[in-house]
Every structure is written in C-alpha cells, then in structure tokens.
C-alpha cells in the first residue's frame, strides 16, 4: 500500500507514520509525509498512492476546499482531525473514514483496514461526489447518479439527465464510498438498484439490466442470480 500523510505538526506526523508502519508492516510499499496539502500535491503528481491521511482544520472554508480536492483524487482519503463535529459532513463528501484526534493505533488500523479490504465500505456513504473539471472541483449530488461505468484508472458517472462526468477514482474505490443502493452488476458497472426496471436473460447466457430510462447495461453471469433475488 502506498500512503501519503499530510500533517503540519511533527509530533502527530511522527505518530501517524509510526503507527502506519506498525500496522501495515510488509504491506507498506511507500510512505511520504508532507506538512501541507500543496506540498503533497506536487509529490502526488509523480507518485500515485492508495490513500491519503489528511489532517484538516475543518472549521474554515479552506479546510473544506482541501477536503474536496482530496476526495476528488484517485486515492482514498482518511481524515485525521480534532473537528469531530464535522465528521458526518466529511463522510458526505466521500471520505472512506474519519479518525478523531487523539487517536489510538487500533482506530487507525480499522481505518486502514477499510482501504485494504476489497468490498469494505465507508461507515457513512457519500452524498456528493467531487469531480475535477477544468482545474476546479465540482460537486455532483449522489442522488443524480444512475450508474457508474469503469474506464480503467478512472470512472464515468452517468447522471439521470444523461450527462456524464469523469471521476479520478477507480470503480473499486468508488464502490467503497457509494451508498449501499449501488450494486456492482458487472466488472465495469455500478448501478443504482432503484433505477433498475427489469433484468433480462437472453440467449447465449447474455444478461442485461434494463433501467427505467430504457438504457440496458450488461450483467455478469456470476451476479445475475443474486441480483434477481435482490430485485424481487
């Protein structure tokens, strides 16, 4: 696992780094510590990571802006902050976990476990997805998303109005922060089950989900039976 930690207090950074090394042991491929988000951003441009441990003062406007920039990135964001009163809000933007300060090794391990474990989901699902657009970060309301199509290292959000938005996260990472209503129906598709009208099985073991707006999406054979039961 590749990690970046962004923390301006050296004692706390030291503590975070120490715990990460102890928890991940051999699983830790790379750990980079930065004092500010800007400092980390330069490094991240060259060095992709799986997760950022981000210390934020969420009280001000600036903290929320940094949060949006972080969650719009390809990596997962774990917030490490004393502003526990803003935790729910942070989750709504799509962080995978919120570790309140002061923190124990066990609490940090639980957060890292969410990132490491495939299929694990955030305690609270995102209600908005931050997407980068022309150098800015914009928010897309989760309720507007019909389905998500994987496209290699990034994903495409398909909205109810037909618009498409690119997101830097992979389909796997998005799955971890999306509401439980979203199901992985195919290796390339995450669909909001409430938007599904019917499932069709055609000849040659070809399965499809027909959405309420008429769009048909492929279903992997392994998921068809389970999905049909869920839909019923």
């Amino acid at each position: 696992m590749k990690l970046v930690l962004i923390e301006d207090e050296p004692l706390v950074a030291q503590r975070l780094a120490r715990f990460c090394r102890e928890i991940l042991a051999g699983g830790l491929e790379k750990l980079h510590a930065a004092a500010t988000f800007d400092e980390a951003a330069a490094w991240l441009a060259e060095n992709p990571v799986d997760v950022a441990l981000l210390d934020l003062n969420l009280e001000g406007q600036d903290g929320m802006e940094l949060l949006k920039r972080s969650v719009a990135s390809s990596f997962h964001t774990i917030i490490v902050s004393a502003n526990t009163d803003r935790a729910l809000e942070a989750f709504q933007y799509g962080v995978i976990d919120f570790v309140p300060k002061p923190f124990s090794r066990e609490r940090l391990a639980a957060a890292l476990e969410r990132v490491r474990h495939p299929g694990a989901r955030a305690a609270f699902a995102a209600r908005n997805l931050a997407v980068k657009k022309a150098g800015r970060v914009e928010l897309v309301a989760m309720d507007d998303v019909l389905y998500v199509q994987g496209a290699g290292n990034y994903s495409e959000l398909v909205l109810a109005n037909g618009r498409r938005e690119l997101h830097d996260k992979t389909l796997e990472k998005l799955e971890a922060i999306l509401p439980a209503d979203f199901e992985r129906i195919h290796k390339s598709y995450l669909v909001r089950m409430s938007a599904v009208k019917a499932l069709h099985a055609s000849e040659g073991s070809h399965y499809e989900a027909e959405l309420k707006n008429g769009v048909c999406l492929p279903i992997s054979r392994a998921r068809y039976k389970e999905l049909r039961e869920k839909l019923q």
Partner: peptide
C-alpha cells in the same frame, strides 16, 4: 476542543 484535542494528540506521542 480543537486546541485541546490537537495538543493531546501531540502529548500522547510524546
């Protein structure tokens, strides 16, 4: 709380 919690985090490391 913010000031104290941040300080306590540093204290726990020390």
């Amino acid at each position: 709380p913010h000031f104290l919690l941040n300080t306590l985090t540093a204290v726990s490391e020390v």
